[in-house]
Amino acid sequence: MTGQISATIGNPPDELDLSGLKCPLPVLRTRKALRTLPPGAVLSVLSTDPLAVIDIPHLVRSEGHVLLSQESRAGAARFTIRRGAD
């Protein structure tokens, strides 16, 4: 299910598992996923790409979203992002 958004209703935030994907795919798929969500929605992104810790926060800031949290452990990074207003 790599690269897919979990669409479980009532279990926010939506999760995007990008494990195993290399730059630039994690940031491109994160951008695409955020564009499908309504303003204010929360997306959790999991990535094993070491460059994601630079690229995803930059994407979030440059597109007007909010990085709620960023965690790194066991070779993976998890980002929690709130989609900004259009």
Rank of each mutant, 00 (worst) to 15 (best):
G3E: 03
G3R: 01
Q4A: 12
Q4V: 11
Q4R: 15
Q4I: 09
A7F: 10
T8Q: 12
I9A: 12
G10P: 07
P12N: 01
P12V: 04
D14K: 11
D14V: 10
E15R: 14
D17Q: 03
D17E: 04
S19E: 12
G20Y: 05
K22S: 13
K22D: 13
K22M: 11
P24N: 02
P26H: 08
P26L: 11
V27N: 02
V27W: 00
L28F: 01
L28T: 01
R29I: 00
T30S: 04
R31D: 14
R31K: 14
R31H: 13
K32R: 15
K32H: 07
A33W: 01
A33L: 05
A33V: 08
T36M: 13
T36W: 03
L37H: 04
P38R: 15
P39E: 03
G40Q: 05
A41C: 04
V42N: 11
V42R: 15
S44W: 03
S44L: 13
V45E: 06
V45T: 10
V45K: 02
S47R: 04
T48C: 07
T48H: 06
D49N: 12
P50C: 07
L51N: 14
A52R: 12
V53H: 02
D55S: 10
I56P: 03
I56H: 01
L59K: 04
V60Q: 06
V60T: 15
R61S: 15
S62P: 01
S62I: 08
E63F: 02
E63P: 12
G64A: 08
H65F: 11
H65R: 06
L67K: 07
L67M: 12
L68E: 15
L68Y: 00
L68D: 06
L68I: 15
Q70A: 13
Q70M: 14
E71K: 14
S72T: 15
A74Y: 06
G75K: 05
F79I: 08
F79W: 08
T80C: 13
I81M: 04
R82S: 13
R83H: 01
G84I: 02
G84Y: 04
A85G: 11
D86G: 06
